[in-house]
């Protein structure tokens, strides 16, 4: 039995939330490596371009009562197809915009993706700028201060990680999870549970209006 089901059934106060998270960034900055380190705790230097998988999932336990499940959609070359890519991140609740701290151009691309997300994605999307390849800090071309200043300017989170060593990977996802609206979900569940029907209340006829 999956953990989220058992936790829900054993402890009524347990909170479980599922979020769609997308990774964006220039090619070869290590997006897939970050995902694999997080989901499978593995790393290979010779990873090929992402093929096949639609998405991966990983569950993390924030505290004994709070479980967050990430549905992680890794990009696979669709950055070139702008309109298609926008469909892919439009419904995401969280996004990791990854750049390579040893490649200046990758930060520029990351800035582009942040702008795109802010323009096209959900207004309440949690964006995190992620500087990867921290293990190559001696070859660093982008200082932490520079990236942090940019992140602060846009009021987004920033973290530096190494998919190779695994440094900060879990912390990064944990920070994202903490930033996500977990309470809303549990509140809405509680509301549903406690919902009563007021027979005197007139039905809202607008509920069935076409949303298109």
């Amino acid at each position: 039995m999956p953990s989220e089901i058992s936790s829900q059934s054993s402890t009524p106060e347990a909170r479980f939330s599922q979020f769609k998270l997308v990774l964006l960034g220039e090619s070869a900055v290590g997006k897939s490596s970050i995902v694999h380190r997080f989901v499978k705790d593995s790393f290979t230097d010779l990873r090929e371009s992402t093929i096949g998988a639609a998405f991966l999932t990983q569950t993390i336990q924030l505290d004994p009562n709070t479980t967050v499940k990430f549905e992680i959609w890794d990009t696979a070359g669709q950055e070139r197809y702008r309109s298609l890519a926008s469909m892919y991140y439009r419904n995401a609740q969280a996004a990791l915009v990854v750049f390579d701290i040893t490649q200046e151009s990758s930060l520029e691309k990351a800035k582009y993706w942040v702008k795109e997300l802010q323009k096209q994605a959900n207004s309440n999307i949690v964006i995190t700028l992620v500087g990867n390849k921290l293990d190559l800090s001696e070859e660093r071309k982008i200082s932490e201060d520079e990236a942090l200043a940019y992140a602060n300017e846009l009021n987004i989170m920033y973290c530096e990680v190494s998919a190779k060593s695994g440094q900060n990977i879990k912390d990064c996802f944990r920070d994202v999870a903490l930033k996500l609206p977990l309470d809303n979900k549990s509140n809405s569940q509680n509301q549903r549970r406690n919902k009563t029907v007021d027979l005197s209340k007139r039905p809202n006829t607008n509920e069935q209006q076409c949303a298109c």
Binding site: S3, V39, G52, A53, F55, L56, T57, I60
Partner: peptide, 19 residues
Amino acid sequence: YFDTSSSTSKSNNPSSGSI
């Protein structure tokens, strides 16, 4: 990296939060 089963979430350790 197959579509079907690569997404796995296994038992969690509530105390530590590790995977």
